[in-house]
Design a protein around this nucleic acid. Structure first.
Length: 1123
RNA sequence: GGGCACGUGGCGGAAUUGGUAUACGCGCAGGACUCAGAAUCCUGUCCCGCAAGGGUUGGAGGUUCAAAUCCUCUCGUGCCCACCA
């Protein structure tokens, strides 16, 4: 009987309605089943709608989740919308519609497109990041971060996109340009909220090892985090200073801290004066300032320091000076006698107004420290001090609150001008011939620089530059020397110059480097341009890693001074080389340096002994190269320290050579090009590069030279020993920067903060959340660094939650990444008004078992992992990682091989494809296109294959019989096994091909048993849910096939009675034999020898060797020559 | 410049992880059905050779009884990072 074609449109409609009506995909928490949480990266609902590339990941999770459900698990497969962000806002600006209107329209469109494909989403859990009921919790997380000290305000220069008119996180840049609009970003100083993701860097890195993620994604994350181990080393500034230390109202010059400071400063040759100040508990300005002034004389080399009330006295003293001093350092200072923990009457006889201009004029630099845990002086007080003096107060961690410890290294560091550098190569410190500070370096404002105007101009110019200009390829190094200041290299004790240059980045390490031009490309380039000394301190060292001569691990080395002599021909452009007779070596002349010899005389002697030439002229000693190898005849590891000596022969005059020397090797005259191929040891290749001038600067590890007590030590050891020896310390640094969290735009979550003049930044009380986004007239960013929200006075002006006084709301919004950093938790409990997620539900569903997505994943994943770890720390999440397994998808390109885009007019809408070919054919085609992670171009021609397969299955219903077809037993068992395994492994393409193979087998038999048919439909159900539901019903199956139990198979059907074993002779196939799987080697051999072809290939002889892999292969190795 | 992948027919790709290379599908060619086309079905389809046979996984070496798979070098492509000290 002829069957109608499959009417996909009708079948899809019928079943999609029924699934929806019966709610078969709703996820429940109380079924007692094992759970499975399958998640797609939720989309941004753009105005363009879906193209055929978008559903690829959704189809995969759909298949996977349907399979999980049929395996008896309780499945959570939700969908939602990441709808805040710039595109919606820009669209709103263009069309003058509210972004919410556009977003709602887009969501409706996306939903209808998705519905047509027949997904098993639980729509009752749909969420939307722009819904106040959702972003209430995004704001809640922000307040929790603030509460735990992980959010703070900063005024550091940040990346500013002049086109989007907003600040951006480091992660939002693409090689120095805004990733959205490709405009070069500039540095701009704006008050910003910043999240301290750096506090989690180490855990974000370490926990990667526990994740079942593709290796390249983990690698990208490691790259972002960018951990590097190195050393922080202090380079003291040259020159002797006189320090005048003024104690506070609880201090005395006899306190241990002052003894400690005196000892440390005097040890460096400085002078220390600690005057006793009278009556500090009832301050009297005149008396105290007079005491300070009387204690000593003041000049350019004087640095005045004050602690607590002493800081105030120091300011007053500086104000009254008639000469200029080197600098003013304040710790725990204040400008207003009001304290956190006590009240004290300081008003008597003290003038609390300061002449900041006078102080600034009198002091070379001013530096103020504030302890983050100070009990007396609030942050706000410290800020006021900073404002009064026109400086930024540096917040540090004191040993004891308010710097009351016995030793306070932060004070010492602030007093004693040093430049702290970060380096991963402390082994090169003896070659550090200058220092470089980044233009942002805070020390630049404090140093007594003679050419201050020039330096300031350079710093200003650097700030103006875009990232691109600053780091463009072919960049020319620029910089300015700081005249009048020098640093001391703590290893060599030599004075070295200091530069400011923008090739050093302010945000990484300490913002300062020691420059080693001999062993760093960038430093070398800079040194060449500025005529700075280049000092070699690392000699190249090579280890032999191949036999013969591979180093014997753990055995000691004997050391030998040696030479490698490069000898030029007297007339040709060729060089003398030795071809060794007993080993496969090609070398230059080489040998040891005996006592009393110099490298030059040793090289000449070696040349005479080995080849006989006597008329050599010494030209050059290139330096030393070290070769580590195992000396086979001497049975020892050897490290040969070889001077590379260049000789030129003046004539062919030569002597007789001893017979034993001549027997060892043949001399050859080779050109440079020939030598490149001929020389076997790496050390000799290195020598050749020196000769040809091809050896660039050496940046690798090696052996230290000219490095005092560390000379001849190897880099790896020196890296461990040098930092401590020069007073530095090993530290770990990360490339990842803190997350700039403020956006000066409208369409985002308002940051729930109220700024009060009196109380500073006050968090909005939890019970007042959410802070709803108000309606505005215009969405345009102001461009001044203020969000459009700032233009709504009735929203901005509020009462301070703490004091009730007048206050203003924070008008910046959060970045788009905020809402997507925790949405997977909300799906577990999407309508809860009391809490972010109910602990019971979280415990049941977490973590996400399989997470599928592609684009932007590195950033999203790092932010989400950061927030998740924080939520874990405060007890909201029960595990420390959100996504157990991650599958990365490859994109679908347009037929022309380009990206699918409205711009190119090559977009294919899934609606059209579904209408023409059906949802099931569309799903099968997308999964059959290739491996899931591959990027492949769409092909309308190829989708026909999927359509044909659907039609074939449809027709196959006509072949169903009551009785099982025995010949299909094994193929069906194999198919059940493979399809199940492949779905779990995300290998959908091979699962489909296995089902096609089975369909071919059914057609060959022209029959299939009813039970076999129904099992086959179940295998196909996750891929083609509509077709199989229809056929399942026709065959008498109970609704729904998607809630039926995944078929099992009899493993015995997989174990065939006989297997084909391929017979090879000498690795080439000569036939095959049928054997029982348990056949012995003897049986297999006997069967194989029956074959004529096998006998012929063996030449009538018995095989010399037999390799038998039961069930697979029998390889016979013949006796013939060559085997 | 650094890191990570990858390279198999005309095309997408498969190969139980070292054991019959090219499964499955697209395309193409020939045939059947048809007045004709669409659709469908059958046959063929890596290269050389009439055949027996030989060759072939970007290229060159190596390890192994056996290599697409492991190692070394080399060429090419893609992705990520990039003045990160």
């Amino acid at each position: 009987m002829a069957r109608e074609r499959f009417d996909h449109a009708k079948v899809e409609r019928v079943w999609q309605e029924r699934w929806e009506k019966e709610g078969i995909y709703a996820a429940k928490e109380d079924t007692g089943k094992q759970k499975s949480y399958v998640l797609d990266m939720f989309p941004y609902p753009s105005g363009e709608g879906l193209h055929v590339g978008h559903p690829k990941g959704y189809i995969a999770t759909d298949i996977y989740s349907r399979h999980e459900r049929m395996k008896g698990k309780e499945v959570l497969h939700p969908m939602g919308w990441d709808a805040f962000g710039l595109p919606a806002e820009n669209y709103a600006i263009k069309t003058k519609t509210h972004p919410r209107v556009a977003v709602e329209k887009n969501i409706a469109n996306f939903k209808s497109q998705l519905a047509k494909i027949g997904f098993d989403y639980d729509w009752s859990r749909e969420i939307n990041t722009t819904d106040p009921a959702y972003y209430k919790w995004t704001q809640w997380i922000f307040l929790k971060l603030l509460e735990h000290g992980l959010a703070h305000q900063s005024e550091e220069p940040i990346n500013w996109c002049p086109s989007c008119m907003t600040g951006l996180a480091n992660e939002d840049l693409d090689g120095g340009v805004c990733e959205r609009c490709s405009t070069p970003v500039v540095k701009k100083k704006l008050p910003q909220w910043v999240l301290k993701i750096t506090d989690y860097a180490d855990r974000l890195l370490k926990d990667l090892d526990t994740l079942d993620w593709p290796e390249h994604v983990k690698e990208s994350q490691r790259n972002w985090i960018g951990r590097s181990e190195g050393a922080e080393i202090d380079f003291p500034l040259a020159g002797k200073y006189k320090f005048v230390l003024l104690h506070g109202f609880t201090g005395k010059p006899s306190d241990p801290l002052y003894g400690w400071l005196r000892k440390n400063l005097e040890a460096r040759g400085h002078e220390v004066v600690i005057p006793e100040l009278p009556a500090t508990d009832a301050p009297n300005e005149e008396e105290q300032v007079a005491a300070a002034l009387a204690a000593t004389s003041f000049d350019e080399r004087t640095i005045l320091y004050g602690h607590s009330l002493g800081a105030v006295v120091a300011m007053k003293t500086a104000e009254k000076l008639r000469t200029r001093i080197g600098g003013l350092v304040l710790a725990g200072g204040f400008v207003d006698p009001k304290f956190k923990d006590h009240a004290r009457n300081f008003e008597n006889k003290f003038e609390w107004r300061f002449d900041a201009a006078k102080i600034r004029a009198n002091c070379g630099f001013i530096c103020a420290l504030q302890d983050v845990n100070d009990v007396a002086v609030s942050e706000e007080q410290a800020d006021r001090l900073g404002k009064a003096l026109g400086i930024t107060v540096k917040r540090v961690q004191a040993e004891e609150p308010h710097f009351d410890g016995r030793e306070e290294p932060e004070i010492l560091r602030a007093l004693q001008p040093t430049v702290q550098v970060f380096t991963t190569r402390p082994d090169t410190i003896y070659g550090a011939t200058y220092l470089v500070l980044a233009p942002e370096h805070e020390l630049l404002a404090r140093l007594p620089i003679e050419n201050a105007a020039e330096v300031r101009a350079y710093i200003a110019a650097a700030a103006q530059k875009t990232e691109i200009e600053r780091s463009a390829e072919g960049r020319e190094k620029t910089g300015v020397e700081l005249k009048g200041v020098k640093a001391i290299n703590p290893a060599t004790k030599e004075e070295i110059p200091i530069y400011v240059a923008d090739y050093v980045l302010g945000g990484y390490g300490t913002g300062a480097i020691m420059a080693v031009p001999a062993h760093d490309e960038r430093d070398h380039e800079f040194a060449q341009k500025f005529g700075l000394p280049i000092k070699q301190v690392i000699e190249p060292t090579y280890e032999q890693t191949t036999e013969p001569g591979r180093i014997r691990e753990g055995e000691p080395f004997d050391h030998r001074e040696a030479i490698i002599a490069i000898v030029k021909h007297w007339s040709d452009d060729t060089y003398l080389a030795l071809k060794w007779k007993e080993v496969a070596w090609g070398t230059f002349i080489t040998g040891g340096i005996e006592e009393g010899q110099t490298p030059e005389t040793a090289a000449k002697a070696e040349l005479r002994e080995e080849i006989g030439y006597t008329d050599a002229r010494f030209v050059k000693d290139f330096g030393v190269v070290h070769g580590k190898f195992y000396h086979v005849p001497k049975k020892t590891n050897r490290n040969a320290h070889a001077h590379v000596v260049y000789l030129e022969l003046a004539s062919d005059e030569r002597e007789q050579v001893a017979a034993d020397e001549a027997a060892k090797h043949d001399p050859l005259w080779l050109t440079a090009a020939e030598l490149k191929k001929f020389l076997t040891p790496d050390t000799h290749q290195h020598a050749l590069r020196w000769l040809l001038g091809e050896q660039g600067i050496y940046t690798g590890f090696g052996t230290l030279a000219d490095s005092g007590p560390f000379t001849r030590m190897e880099s790896t050891e020196a890296i461990e020993k040098i930092p401590e020896a020069v007073g530095g310390r090993m530290v770990v640094r990360y490339k990842i920067r803190d997350w700039v969290f403020s956006r000066q735009r409208y369409w985002g979550e308002p940051i729930p903060i109220i700024h009060c003049e009196k109380d500073g930044a006050v968090p909005v009380p939890y019970e007042d959340l959410p802070v709803k986004l108000p309606e505005v007239e215009h969405y345009e960013p102001s461009g001044t660094g203020e969000s459009p929200l700032a233009a709504i006075p009735e929203w901005v002006n509020v009462k301070c939650p703490t004091c009730g006084g007048p206050a203003k709301r924070e008008t910046n919004t959060m970045p788009q990444w905020a809402g997507s950093s925790w949405y997977y938790l909300r799906f577990m409990d999407p309508r809860d008004e009391e809490q972010l997620v109910a602990p019971k539900k979280e415990k049941y569903w977490a973590p996400v078992d399989v997470y599928v997505g592609g684009d932007h994943a590195v950033r999203h994943l790092i932010y989400a992992r950061f927030w998740h770890k924080f939520l874990y720390d405060i007890g909201i999440a029960s595990g420390s990682e959100p996504f157990k397994r991650l599958e990365f998808l490859g994109f679908i390109l347009a037929e022309d091989g380009r990206k699918m885009s409205k711009r190119f007019g090559n977009v294919i809408n899934p609606d059209d494809v579904v209408a023409q070919f059906g949802a099931d054919a569309f799903r099968i085609y997308e999964m059959f296109m290739g491996p899931f992670e591959n990027t492949v171009a769409w092909s309308t021609a190829s989708i026909k294959g999927a359509e044909r397969f659907v039609e074939r299955v449809w027709k196959m219903a006509g072949l169903v019989e009551d009785e099982a077809v025995p010949a299909l037993g094994t193929p069906l068992a194999e198919t059940i096994k493979k399809v199940g395994e492949d779905i779990e492994a995300f290998k959908f393409n091979t699962a489909i091909s296995q089902m096609m193979i089975f369909a071919n087998a059914v057609e060959k038999e022209s029959a299939i048993g009813k039970d076999q048919w129904m099992q086959f439909l179940q295998l196909l159900a996750p891929f083609a849910p509509h077709l199989t539901e229809e056929l399942w019903g026709e065959a008498g199956g109970e609704f729904s096939i998607h809630t039926s139990t995944w078929p099992s198979y009899d493993p015995e059907l997989l174990a065939k009675a006989e297997v084909e074993v391929v017979v090879q002779v000498a690795g080439k196939k000569r036939g095959s034999i049928m054997l029982s799987p348990g056949a012995t080697e003897a049986q297999a051999l006997a069967a194989a020898m029956q074959s004529e072809a096998v006998g012929k290939a063996l030449g009538g002889e018995e095989p010399a060797k037999v390799v038998y892999v039961p069930g697979r292969i029998l390889n016979l190795v013949p006796r013939k020559a060559g085997y």
